[in-house]
């Protein structure tokens, strides 16, 4: 496909690769919102160019390095990438889990990330297990002026909540959506009492129904090896992938009549409403036949 005309999607900052991968001299030829692009480092300066159909290098767009990733935009962002002050705290380990491709809409991917009800069925024995399947009541809100979706006071019983966890625990969660394509969760740290671990996904929408998903963790865990941490997160994410690639239609329906929801879907419903109010169309299911409907 060609570059989308959806201004709402174009005017966001998007993560398109890890600093570590690109700084080692590997240019990343990739795609963003239907536009082929090249991401590279000029010394310490990240740069992004359009990659023209004829193979030539085209217009340059803004790029910046943040949270171990290269961020860029094809439009004129009205809002900076999300602020995560925890990145400045001592003792935290940043785990960059690498990009993984998923044939699904970015919006389905973000919505799945906000969902606790699937833990016992998709992450069986790790993040949930029958018969403890109930989603306890939680709070949802749009935070202003940040314009972010939050779900707080979430909790779920988990047989193995993290790479470092030996036993089951009730994990507390907070979820935060800072752009249609960027979401972070704060989760009970199994090692340090009262502290939160961060897990986030920066979804790079390549096309309406294909994304690279950049996953990171920012954890207080001095014992697990880097491989342990990366494997744990990749295992969780790949379990989700087999679900995400089998949702039909691929585009996220924003019309409340299109898919049934219950109270436990509160964060999903608020996310859909927030997207609808923004006027986002890229990656949504549109009844007029212009979407990627199956």
């Amino acid at each position: 496909m060609t570059r989308t005309t959806d201004k709402v999607a174009l005017n966001e900052w998007q993560a398109v690769g890890t600093v570590e991968e690109i700084i080692s001299g590997k240019r990343r030829n990739t795609r963003l919102l239907g536009q082929d692009i090249i991401v590279e480092m000029d010394g310490e300066i990240p740069r992004m160019f359009e990659n023209n159909a004829n193979g030539g290098i085209g217009t340059e767009h803004p790029a910046q390095a943040l949270y171990g990733h290269i961020w860029t935009t094809l439009g004129t962002p009205v809002k900076a990438p999300l602020d995560m002050p925890e990145f400045k705290e001592d003792g935290r380990r940043l785990v960059v889990c690498g990009a993984l491709t998923v044939r699904a809409s970015a919006l389905r991917i973000v919505e799945n990330f906000l969902d606790m009800a699937h833990f016992p069925y998709v992450h069986t024995g790790i993040l949930g297990e029958e018969p403890i399947t109930a989603v306890n009541d939680y709070k949802i809100e749009i935070r202003e002026p940040e314009d972010e979706v939050w779900a707080t006071e979430c909790s779920f019983f988990q047989p193995q909540a993290a790479a470092s966890a030996d036993d089951g625990q009730v994990s507390q969660y907070m979820y935060r959506v800072s752009s249609p394509f960027v979401t972070v969760l704060y989760k009970t740290c199994p090692v340090v009492e009262g502290a939160w671990d961060l897990v986030g996904i920066f979804v790079q929408p390549k096309d309406e129904a294909e994304c690279d998903v950049h996953t990171f963790m920012l954890v207080l865990d001095e014992t697990s090896t880097m491989s342990d941490l990366v494997h744990f997160q990749q295992e969780i994410f790949l379990q989700d992938r087999s679900i995400l690639e089998n949702q039909i239609p691929p585009g996220l329906p924003l019309d409340p009549m299109d898919e049934i929801a219950i109270k436990a879907d509160g964060s999903s419903m608020l996310y859909r409403r927030w997207l609808r109010n923004k006027g986002l169309t890229f990656g949504t299911h549109r009844g007029d036949g212009s979407s990627q409907a199956a």
Binding site: T18, E20, E21, A99, T225, M226, S227, D228
Partner: peptide, 10 residues
């Protein structure tokens, strides 16, 4: 023995 196959290329 976990091997960091991706992204580490171990």
């Amino acid at each position: 023995v976990p091997v960091d196959y991706y992204p580490g290329g171990e």
